[in-house]
Simulated assay, not measured.
Amino acid sequence: MNTFDQSNFHTICDELAGKDADLKMVIDTYGYPPMWSRPNTFETLVHIILEQQVSLASALSALNKLRERIQEITPSRVLLLTDEELKACYFSRQKTIYVRYLAEAMLTGEINLKHIAAMPDDAVRNCLTTLKGIGNWTVDVYLMFVLHRTDVFPSGDLAAVNALKRVKQLPPETTKEAVALIAGQWAPYRTVATMMLWHWYLSCPKKVRR
């Protein structure tokens, strides 16, 4: 299980830039990407669930509202809230179900985040996707931001896929298979390459990224 941290993150960026002129352009234009990182906690998984199919700002707003209400975001505290109280924290009906399910799985020991951190990528995916509301995108973000696994490309992430197409000057109709082949050229550092793409997406003018 290969991982990255602050000590080798820029070195990996440089290695990728040395092999791919388009990624070099990202660094030359906008500098190194942030090394996005989150702790291995229940709160982090709740945050990632909230980010599914909504803006990052909306998800953070809901997370902050929840923290405001219960101070510390733990499985037991979340389960004490009614559906109406979670709705007041901007949780949709579906996300209320997903977060309750996750909280129960952690309290019963069905999910143990310390144990998961020691598993290979595929085992992490198999374990987490058994939970209601956790699919491949959620697992991809968890592997990248929390466990810092080096070789994940989130094929279901629109920002990453669109950034790849724009940076590589590919037509919008480029297939998922073609995108996966290009991302495959960045192995074993697809996670860091994706962070470079996100950095480009967040840094460039909106009219350029469309």
Rank of each mutant, 00 (worst) to 15 (best):
M1Q: 09
M1F: 08
N2F: 13
Q6T: 13
F9M: 07
F9W: 08
I12L: 12
I12N: 00
C13A: 08
E15Y: 06
A17N: 04
G18M: 07
G18K: 10
K19S: 09
D20C: 09
K24M: 07
Y30Q: 04
G31R: 08
Y32K: 03
P34H: 13
P34W: 11
S37G: 14
R38W: 03
P39A: 11
P39E: 11
T41A: 09
T44S: 10
L50R: 00
E51Y: 04
E51T: 04
Q52Y: 09
L56Y: 14
L56A: 15
N64C: 15
K65M: 13
L66C: 05
L66T: 02
R67E: 12
E68K: 15
E68I: 08
R69K: 14
I70Q: 03
Q71E: 13
T74S: 08
T74N: 05
S76P: 12
V78H: 00
L79M: 09
L80G: 14
L81I: 09
L81A: 04
E85Q: 12
A88K: 15
A88G: 15
C89H: 03
Y90S: 14
Y90F: 15
F91N: 02
S92C: 15
I97Q: 11
V99I: 09
Y101K: 15
L102E: 01
A103C: 11
T108S: 13
E110I: 12
I111G: 01
N112R: 14
N112G: 11
N112M: 08
K114C: 08
H115F: 14
D122N: 13
A123V: 12
V124F: 04
R125P: 02
K132A: 14
K132C: 14
G133N: 07
N136T: 10
N136W: 07
T138Y: 01
T138A: 05
L143P: 03
M144V: 07
V146D: 02
V146F: 02
H148C: 06
T150M: 06
F153N: 00
F153M: 02
P154R: 05
G156I: 00
D157G: 05
A159C: 10
A160G: 04
V161D: 02
N162G: 10
L164C: 03
L164V: 00
R166P: 00
R166W: 05
R166V: 02
V167Y: 00
V167L: 02
Q169Y: 07
L170S: 05
T175H: 08
T175Y: 05
A178V: 06
A180V: 09
L181Y: 09
L181F: 14
A183R: 00
Q185K: 13
W186E: 01
R190Y: 04
R190T: 03
T191I: 11
V192H: 02
H199A: 00
W200I: 00
S203M: 04
K206T: 07
R209V: 00
